[in-house]
Design a protein around this nucleic acid. Structure first.
Lengths: 342, 342
DNA sequence: ATGAAAGCGCTAACAC
DNA sequence: GTGTTAGCGCTTTCAT
């Protein structure tokens, strides 16, 4: 009792393979009665299509392009690694992945890249871009050209993208806030927030969520205005000591953006590594070490490997006009303490 | 410039398709010189095998069986749902999944099931079983019969299984301990531990990790001996009130096993819902609600959907003699607070 | 509107 | 040892 194939449908419904195929793929040129006959046969014998064979015959392969800002943060480094590491595996599955870096903070360059991709007609693009009117419009043009678009990490809801691969950053900020508040306990104190700038939208959202939760649930804490570390370890190392001595009573630090190396270096240099409660984002190698030695108390992160694989699966599903498994594509807000480090 | 195929290899190396195939699949009956010629051609033209076409031609399909204890916990309910929900998708990929329930606490039944599977010659088995000598030996026989075996949630390292899909439960217990300790703060207090029994091994490991971390990092806390709730909501609701009044100064509860409904009910009935710090396992629907209304402070869990998909991917990779993507198959110890609920 | 036949990239009898 | 050939399940010309 082997699995039914198109031949079985043809036999049972008394038509040819070509007609079966037309019905299966909803192509025109078949009489309504014939369609019905074929469909009856399909349900009768319980046919399920062999997607692999279909793709083989179709000779269809998908080209997906990741477009990322050319910065050296741990997060982007990890993302690039996941993309290139996964390539051989994807190759076996009729999809070819490309990775293009664009200069950061340069909307023109981003627009030019996206327009080139639209002209080339790639099947899908996964893009991490700041939210500017120009990029928003370029993404719209890309979609209009028939390319599937997912946004990565930082969403552009107005861009008409098909899907967003990332987390709710307000919730991520709230999570950081709760950990900070509960770890610090009921005594009053001040908290320094170290913001970046690169991905304006997600950082702003995290800050918002953090502030809200502190305000309502931990009123004994006072959150100081953001220190602009520009996601740069050296800048952070330069400005943090002054801030720390300017504000007595600082008991916690919330590091919203990249540049954790600078923060860690400073805390060690000032001998504060274990005294402050530090909550940071992104599980880069230095952040891991900081968690292990107690410098950091918690790290909030999103699984970069999951994001990359999810982006590819989603692009492919959209390109093949298939549904996605929603639960599988939901990126979690991961909390890591020293004890549950992967 | 299209992707090279076996025909190209044959042309470049001047042999036939059959010989190319023999070399590609390391089958005997080819002279060393010929092998070398073919391999040179392969690297020269940069050939990569089309796995989908190979499987199609091979007419190979895989049968994998999930063997689970027939109990009604939220965890197992969720796992069954994930298995059956995923079936249609798997079907498209030349793998058929079966789910068999065995009576819990009945090593004989488990052994009989596994031996039947071995006789049938299924390609892979994912099993969640208590660690008894009988099951261990049955799994060994299964493996010896050529079936790939992964253990689910609760490992049987001595069974010679190919892979374990689950988390380090000692680390999960440590994670619970750290959350408990830090949320409770420096004041002294007592902590009740509510253990189950079903999966003896994982519960024991969690308890071990929890105790260790409290002992070394939070000596101000006193952990009471385990209350055996047998993973049953009613039993828990029956024994917890007495324990609570017998031990004044209880400030926290660690719920290791299933039966969270009974715990929640009791806390609400006694008006303790918001006063105690409660850390539990498994994000079942009642646990979610408890997190949302503040009855639970943290829930530690493993992503059941991820586990099921990982088990299938791993079984398939082993059956096809392919490597697994280690990072993709690593199950995380997830921490959920109210703020980062998915 | 429908059908016959030739592939897609790979494998597996069966020859030689 | 090596080559020929006929598929796997589906799609796609090109006829009719």
């Amino acid at each position: 009792m082997t699995r039914p194939t198109v031949h079985d449908i043809a036999r049972v419904s008394g038509v040819s393979l070509a007609t079966v195929d037309r019905v299966l793929n909803a192509r025109p040129g078949v009489r309504a009665v014939t369609i019905a006959r074929v469909q009856d046969a399909i349900t009768e014998i319980g046919y399920v299509r062999d997607a692999a064979a279909a793709n083989l015959a179709r000779q269809r392969s998908f080209t997906f392009v990741f477009v990322l800002p050319d910065v050296a943060s741990g997060f982007l480094r990890a993302m690039r690694a996941e993309i290139t590491d996964g390539m051989p595996h994807q190759n076996l599955d009729r999809v070819v992945i490309r990775l293009v870096d664009v200069p950061p903070h340069d909307p023109q360059a981003m627009v030019a890249t996206l327009d080139a991709l639209a002209a080339e007609g790639v099947d899908g693009v996964a893009v991490m871009a700041p939210e500017t009117p120009q990029t928003r419009d370029a993404l719209r043009r890309l979609r209009a050209a028939g390319t599937r678009v997912v946004t990565l990490a930082s969403d552009l809801p107005a861009s008409d993208r098909d899907h967003f691969v990332g987390v709710n950053n307000v919730a991520a900020g709230r999570t950081a806030g709760v950990l900070m508040g509960r770890f610090l306990g009921p005594q009053p104190g001040r908290v320094i927030v170290l913001a970046g700038s690169m991905l304006a939208r997600d950082h702003a959202e995290r800050r918002l969520g953090f502030d809200r939760v502190i305000q309502t649930d931990f009123p004994q804490l006072h959150v100081l205005p953001s220190l602009e570390g520009r996601d740069n370890a050296d800048i952070i190392a330069a400005i943090l000591p002054a801030a720390l001595s300017a504000h007595p009573g600082v008991r916690g630090i919330y590091a919203i953006g990249a540049g954790n190396r600078g923060l860690i270096r400073t805390l060690h240099a000032m001998g504060l590594a274990r005294d402050l409660v530090v909550v940071a984002h992104e599980l880069s190698p230095p952040a891991r070490l900081a968690l292990e030695d107690g410098t950091f108390d918690a790290v909030i992160t999103q699984d970069v490997g999951h994001m990359v694989r999810s982006a590819i699966r989603v692009l492919r599903a959209y390109a093949e006009d298939r549904a996605i498994i929603v639960a599988q594509e939901r990126i979690r807000i991961d909390i890591f303490l020293r004890e549950n480090l992967p």
